[in-house]
């Protein structure tokens, strides 16, 4: 949770500086929010509506700008942006058939910008690491270590013996540790 608090404190400080007229802080704030808003809308708009992500991002930034006096400086900043983004999203979805299927009420999800990003990065890193192994070994490790299937399930699915799966995974992990392992 401390990630969330840090990002709230940082964004709020930027907003307060922006209200005082500091254009440099304002740019940093807008660029940061643009990424968060892209993720927020991107995750919620499917199919044809996905094309509206950038429109919604711009709509939200513009509304923030023209209505910035509605931010109460004594209150947290992130919920304020989230409320505007959510309003714009609901406005778009109103009348669209997707309305009932989109999870829009998720402040924590919106707040968790950097943490979410780290999770996504971690996933990409994992993919890259596993790609350095022979494909078969990489997919065995993914099944056993990441997706937490049992050795028996993986063995059955890959038509190997349980022992062979264990040995392959063990050797693969050893190879990874040799290549990427730090001191820990």
């Amino acid at each position: 949770m401390s990630d969330l608090r840090d990002s709230e404190a940082r964004l709020r400080a930027l907003m307060l500086a922006s209200l005082d007229g500091d254009a440099a802080s304002y740019r940093v704030l807008m660029l940061d929010l643009r990424e968060r808003l892209r993720r927020y809308f991107g995750r919620r708009l499917r199919g044809g509506l996905f094309d509206h992500v950038e429109d919604l991002v711009q709509d939200t930034l513009l509304a923030m700008h023209t209505r910035r006096m509605t931010y109460d400086p004594r209150q947290p900043f992130t919920p304020w942006v989230y409320a505007i983004a959510r309003y714009k999203l609901v406005d778009l979805l109103r009348g669209s058939s997707q309305h009932k299927h989109v999870p829009i009420d998720d402040l924590a999800d919106f707040l968790s910008g950097p943490a979410e990003l780290e999770a996504a990065d971690a996933h990409r890193d994992l993919d890259r690491v596993l790609d350095t192994l022979p494909q078969r070994v990489g997919s065995l490790i993914r099944s056993v270590k990441v997706e937490e299937q049992t050795v028996a399930e993986v063995a059955a699915a890959s038509q190997m013996s349980g022992g062979a799966v264990k040995v392959a995974v063990h050797r693969g992990m050893k190879a990874l540790v040799a290549r990427f392992g730090g001191k820990s």
Binding site: A23, Y26, V57
Partner: peptide, 16 residues
């Protein structure tokens, strides 16, 4: 496009 918007908004920023 969004970059342009951000640049314009930042240029338009007045203290509140």
């Amino acid at each position: 496009m969004t970059d342009d918007l951000i640049a314009r908004l930042a240029a338009d920023l007045k203290p509140v």
